[in-house]
Design a protein around this nucleic acid. Structure first.
Lengths: 255, 255
DNA sequence: AAGTGGTCTAGACCACTAT
DNA sequence: TAGTGGTCTAGACCACTTT
């Protein structure tokens, strides 16, 4: 408005498109992220104050706030009350690996089948009893599954479920429950939370035979345990696969 | 206000404390999360509408919005324009493992030392040349480090840095740069982004000797590559450790 | 005292979904 | 058409940091 005179100062960066389907706060966040990526603002640098951004981009304080919050959530900037907003340096510790790769195996058009190798009632040994918070010797359901991808054995799953006489388990259920559904987010609504641990391992003879892999072979081991809404364990188990099947990859910093 | 009559209907959940240092939006998010955790709202259930929450908790629409956004970011609920807000089911694929455990080794009071085993200029082999985007045979800096925790060998790091004649590397720098700093978030401000890959492996003879581990041994392998603000590779390397040193753990769902 | 981020209001308007 | 989430405004007030 007030730059009628001295026209040459036209900025190239205050182009917020009000007509766009892309929200203003996201456009603003993108604009700032872009400038960081281009090196306009370097790690450690202070960003323009929120008031300044309000004037520069002609948006309301709340909108600027939201854009900054977005960048802060993404670890791109950090804010300090009373001091300012600063560009963050790359921090390895915040790198996060996810299991979206595995999800693809189930949800997409990949030919993934789950074979039930074994499913029977056994008595819990010490380890299983501890994990499922039952007494040693109590009956639990033991299942072994083989997940095949494109006709090749890929994942070998051994799991233990608490045996609930009031809710008998149908065998056909076992084949799909708890794995495909959990990865797709259609998990049983009985499950409130779970814990996952990933660890490197060396495949043993049985695992190698089932997965048709020659020894010795590095393996990735995924242990999982799920709890219901009473915080009681529901199931515990281990998924094992060849190291190459479960490579965790992530990126830090800006693209 | 309008519940002066029929007093018995006093809710136990509309207790937003305006005096608290805990922001209202966070208190509201906590209250909703708590009710989900208690089973008041089950996975798949629809939450009260935002307008309803405004009336129930006597806060402004923006504040409700922010609370819901928080829960949506945390994968606790999902929103659908025109339909409503719904409680999410546990989804394994969104589980994210981070490296905060490693950070603790460096930043805390743990006795962690970094020993430079080797640091010299070599000619890049095919693999290194490809990773660092230089020509095969070009000079690169090769370093080997041993990270000891509480006097015990813990991580073995082999890295390659592009050799920049304009910015000679001091040996003492090598001992700390790029590792401690990167984990603590005080990484060189020259680095814009990086890629990390975690993979299971079996320790080879050299690695086992340096880490003082008997073979055979499962190992976790962390490959990393960093880029500068010109999107040119700066360094590439591999950190290897015993499987038990790098166990990735995470939780899904609600506590 | 001046400048910074942090929260919150009380609406308005829009886009989408159901009926 | 009514109800839902989604965005945005134009401030106000507060807490904190720096000078």
């Amino acid at each position: 408005m007030d730059n009628a005179k001295g026209g040459s100062a036209a900025q190239t960066n205050d182009h917020i498109d009000r007509q766009s389907a892309h929200p203003v706060y996201a456009q603003l966040a993108d604009a700032i992220r872009q400038q960081i990526s281009e090196g306009v603002y370097r790690p450690g640098d202070q960003l323009p104050s929120e008031a300044m951004l309000v004037r520069t981009y002609h948006v309301s304080p709340m909108t600027v706030r939201r854009a900054i919050n977005l960048l802060a959530d993404q670890e791109v900037v950090s804010t300090a009350q009373g001091r300012g907003t600063f560009v963050k340096q790359v921090e390895l510790a915040t790198a996060a690996f996810d299991l979206r790769g595995i999800k693809g195996l189930f949800s997409s058009d990949t030919a993934t089948t789950i074979k039930l190798l074994d499913g029977r009632i056994i008595r819990a040994d010490g380890r299983t009893a501890r994990k499922l918070q039952v007494s040693q010797g109590d009956t639990v359901i033991y299942i072994r599954r083989l997940i095949e991808v494109d006709g090749e054995p890929a994942f070998y799953h051994r799991g233990y479920l608490v045996y609930d006489p009031t809710r008998p388990v149908v065998e056909s259920e076992l084949e799909v429950t708890e794995l495909r559904c959990l990865f797709e987010g259609r998990g049983s609504s009985l499950i409130k939370r779970g814990e996952l641990t990933v660890e490197a391992s060396i495949m043993n003879e049985e695992e190698a035979r089932i997965l048709k892999i020659s020894l010795p072979s590095p393996a990735m081991l995924l242990e999982h345990i799920f709890y219901d809404f009473n915080d009681r364990p529901v199931s515990w188990g281990i998924i094992i696969c060849h190291a190459k099947r479960l490579r965790l990859h992530t990126e830090v910093g800006l693209k």
